[in-house]
Amino acid sequence: MKSALICGVGGQDGSYLAQFLIHKGYKVYGTSRDAQGKAFLNLQKLGIKSHVELISMDQEDFRSVLVAIKKSRPQEVYFLSGQSSVGLSFEQPAETIQSFTLGILNILEAVKLEDNDIKVYHAGSSEAFGGTSEFPATESTPFHPRSPYALAKASASWLVDNYREAYGLHLSTGILFNHESPLRPERFVTQKIIQSAKRISKGSQEKLSLGRLDIQRDWGWAPEYVEAMWLMLQQDIPEDFIVASGKSYSLEYFVDQTFYQLGLNWKDHVIQKEEFFRPTDLLVSRADPKKAFEKLGWKAHLGLEGIIEKMIKG
């Protein structure tokens, strides 16, 4: 039986990845800073908490990381943990940068020392590219981070690239564009929109307060994206891959479709507030996922309208 260690198993991606690997017959270990004290609500929602062996691990403490790897003896490590909110990264820049860069550095060092045959997946981010304007980003597009979160993700990706070249380790970075699901916390704008619209459709008199509506993003379905993570570690040669749908939509369109599916006109319920404008917000984020299709055989299937429908249903 193959074993996998998922760092950050309690988050959206970690939970769906655990579910995917369990169905593949893996023995799944998952980490959190306090595995005994955390509820792991996402794992409970998916009905798989009892199938995951939970390990307490502080990713910023090398000894803690090494102990977790020795205990789980994984063939595959998925590093998905860290402070995951772009907006919050402006308020907590040091914590955000350290959680990603020191976290992946400790994983890389532990794998290098413990077992060079361990394959590592690193969760990169489209935010590292900055705005892509009219040109869709490819794996060779230079990084131009515009937030502490994006800077941290870019730095962590460069660390992975360096260790892969220097030590011949099987390391892959998945450069994931936005991907959603009912497991998204409400601090993310997509879930904020969905939950507010649902309350309004049931009679709430609240107004949905948002920042810019003209930004464009490539949104995908998170349960599909975790398969791409796994596929990267099944390759003989480790490489980095963009994981995206290849279609970008404005946030206004996301809002419009959400309220439309609930029988409402969004213009009657949404207001814009400057307090939700970020210091440097990316206007357009576009992706070219051709490499993932050609080399992994992976492509996104669920469109934005379907994603919104599934999120509404929860």
Rank of each mutant, 00 (worst) to 15 (best):
A137E: 12
L80Y: 09
A154C: 04
Q92W: 07
E139V: 12
Q75M: 11
W158V: 09
A154M: 11
E134Y: 06
S133I: 04
A150W: 02
E134P: 01
Y121N: 02
H122F: 08
P142T: 10
A156M: 12
I97Q: 07
N106L: 03
Q92K: 12
P145G: 08
A123N: 15
V160K: 07
E134H: 14
P148V: 05
K112A: 08
K153Q: 10
G82E: 08
I69P: 05
R146N: 13
Q83A: 11
V111A: 09
F129H: 11
D117C: 02
D161V: 00
I107H: 07
G130E: 10
V77S: 10
F143Y: 15
E127V: 01
T141H: 08
S155R: 01
H144G: 10
A68W: 00
A150G: 12
E127L: 05
V65F: 04
V111T: 07
N116W: 01
Q75S: 15
S72H: 12
K112R: 15
V65D: 08
S89D: 11
D161W: 03
G131P: 08
D161A: 13
P145F: 06
F135D: 13
R73N: 12
T101R: 10
K112T: 14
E114S: 06
A156R: 02
T96W: 00
G124N: 02
A94K: 13
Y121W: 04
A110F: 02
Q75W: 00
F129T: 06
A150K: 12
L105E: 15
S64R: 00
H122Y: 14
P93W: 05
S72L: 03
P145A: 10
V67N: 13
V65G: 10
F129Y: 15
E91I: 13
L159A: 13
S84G: 08
S84I: 00
A68I: 00
L151W: 00
E91L: 15
L108F: 00
T141D: 05
Q75H: 14
N116H: 09
E76L: 02
A128N: 09
A156Q: 04
N116I: 14
Q92A: 11
D161H: 13
